[in-house]
Design a protein around this nucleic acid. Structure first.
Ligand code: MN
Ligand code: MN
Ligand code: ZN
Ligand code: ZN
Lengths: 144, 144
DNA sequence: TAGTAAACGATAATTCTTATCGTCTGTCAA
DNA sequence: TTGACAGACGATAAGAATTATCGTTTACTA
């Protein structure tokens, strides 16, 4: 099949990035993975195909793919430890541009059905909702 | 006022931890903070009261407070970068014991009202729901 | 008030991620 | 096709966040 190769080439053209061997192998291997792999896990797999590849290249390309919208990262806020100081039931609005996090009261969001058990047998304690979007500040900046 | 001091003493007794000066000042300062402070931000404030305090002590006590349920961390998965490999609309079940993350289809979760704009003017792009609870494996381990 | 477990401060170590830099390669126009 | 050049690569140093180590001090209990 060369359909995926052709697709990747087109994908790169759409996003204005060069089609390199490393980038293509990385993309194909990532497409074949499941779950929520870390850069190290991706690196381990790619090294089997390209033993000389650098971990830095893996990081750089994962970021590139995420910025291009080809892949998505699991959490918008995987950075540093943050402590929650709002003891009221609330959720979070996360700006996809500036990454700012602000609170929104549970009541202001139209509530979730609070199942006790989900399919699979997972026992629910609570819901934590990230509303991802554009904060007012970034909306203003964008419309310039 | 010594009411808060008394309360903190009781709180410590409930959780079986010693009442130290550092721990008490840390607690009181954290209670007075808003938003989602980082350990460094907490450290900066506590140092004004206890200049000799160590950053390690701040970290150790924040973790202690979180384990005891006195405070909560903003994100269950703030650790390392993870890439999402499931392109279907879905959310996540996060186990509060083993921290494992598994997917749950949007349809299997009773959907959210998809407002376009929230109070405050935040423009919604999508929702990311963490269902926090106990995974089947940990339920089995717990009931021993 | 003494004995002991826990907590503290200083700081080394670890982990994850990004920056730097010299070399190499893909793109594009001639 | 063939250069010129921007961009990508690999190696590795640097940086940021967090945790571990360890000798000293402190809080709890009897
Ligand atoms: Mn919050
Ligand atoms: Mn997922
Ligand atoms: Zn913003
Ligand atoms: Zn679990």
């Amino acid at each position: 099949m060369e359909s995926s190769a052709t697709n990747f080439r087109e994908l790169c053209q759409q996003h204005g990035i060069a089609v390199t061997h490393q980038r293509q192998v990385l993309f194909e291997i990532m497409q074949g993975m499941h779950g929520h792999p870390s850069p190290e896990e991706v690196y381990a797999r790619v090294k089997k195909k390209i033993p000389a590849i650098s971990l830095a290249t893996v990081y750089k390309n994962i970021h590139l793919f995420v910025e291009s919208g080809i892949f998505r990262e699991v959490s918008m806020h995987h950075g540093t430890l943050r402590v929650e100081m709002n003891s009221r039931p609330h959720h979070h609005m996360v700006c996809s541009m500036c990454k700012s996090i602000s609170d929104i009261d549970e009541a202001d969001l139209g509530l979730l059905p609070s199942h006790q058990k989900l399919p699979g047998g997972f026992l629910v304690e609570r819901y934590a909702v990230d509303v991802i979007g554009i904060c007012p500040d970034c909306q203003a900046k964008k419309s310039n």
